[in-house]
């Protein structure tokens, strides 16, 4: 009969009208600034650069290998590797820019980074009063501590830290072996003040750099660890150039 369907519809809307006062399944609005939904751990927004230790720029894990720059689909990353006075690469980015207006948060830079240096942020309140503010993020703005990474992606970060620690342990062992071999080879060598890399790596990366290593001075971005220089001080340096890319194949631009 004419009107039955209409009445049924009215019944449904009435049910929803009443239900929206008592049924949580029927009032799903999150009143945003006061209430917030919990972000899932996998949530991703624009990328940031992870640094270990306390020094934002010096502690960057990034070695300016430019893989992400090449792989970035919209090509929003711009990197200039840093060089020392002699013109040799220092394995540090001099310029690391991400054009936020171009970036599409696809996470490919994170996937391709062999050094776990770039990660996805969860910061979504990024509105600015000026329309051109903070569209191009510089290295300083991008750098965020490992503790922050731990905070936003705890499970993933723990995994990454464990992996890094494992790699570092292996590298240290290798370096130690190499050093011992060198020592054995050069029997007349002076017993240097090479730091013994025997400290077990902490699984939580919130501690300062676990292994003190001098940045590689070699020109090639090869993931081989250079011999440890005995002159460095462990306190000031942070771990960079974590050598082994555990996930993927050969790094290299």
């Amino acid at each position: 009969m004419l009107g039955i369907g209409l009445l049924k519809g009215l019944g449904v809307t009435a049910k929803n009208l009443v239900g929206s006062f008592h049924d949580p399944a029927r009032l799903v609005t999150t009143e945003y600034p006061e209430q917030r939904t919990k972000l899932p751990e996998n949530y991703r927004n624009f990328p940031f650069l992870v640094y270990d230790g306390t020094a934002a720029i010096d502690g960057l894990r990034c070695v300016a290998c430019k893989i992400c720059e090449v792989e970035c689909p919209p090509q929003c990353i711009y990197i200039i590797p840093d060089r020392d006075e002699k013109g040799r690469p220092t394995k540090k980015p001099k310029v690391f820019d991400i054009d936020i207006s171009v970036c599409m948060s696809c996470q490919i830079c994170v996937e391709v980074c062999p050094f776990d240096a770039i990660k996805m942020d969860q910061q979504y309140e990024i509105a600015e009063a000026d329309r051109f503010d903070r569209l191009l993020l510089k290295r300083e703005a991008l750098a965020k501590p490992n503790s922050y990474y731990q905070e936003i992606h705890p499970a993933e970060a723990a995994q990454v830290d464990a992996m890094l620690a494992e790699a570092r342990r292996k590298a240290d062992a290798k370096a130690k072996a190499a050093a011992e071999a060198a020592a054995a080879k050069a029997a007349t060598a002076k017993p240097g003040a090479a730091n013994p890399p025997t400290r077990p790596p902490a699984p939580s990366g919130s501690t300062p750099a676990t292994a003190a290593m001098k940045p590689a001075t070699a020109a090639m971005p090869e993931p081989a660890v250079p011999p440890v220089q005995p002159t460095q001080t462990p306190a000031e340096n942070s771990a960079t150039g974590n050598p082994v890319a555990p996930k993927t194949g050969t790094p290299g631009a």
Partner: peptide
């Protein structure tokens, strides 16, 4: 089911 009750049998929609 709810959605269809709301609208599928609705004479106006038909």
């Amino acid at each position: 089911d709810e959605y269809e009750a709301l609208i599928t049998g609705n004479e106006i929609l038909m």
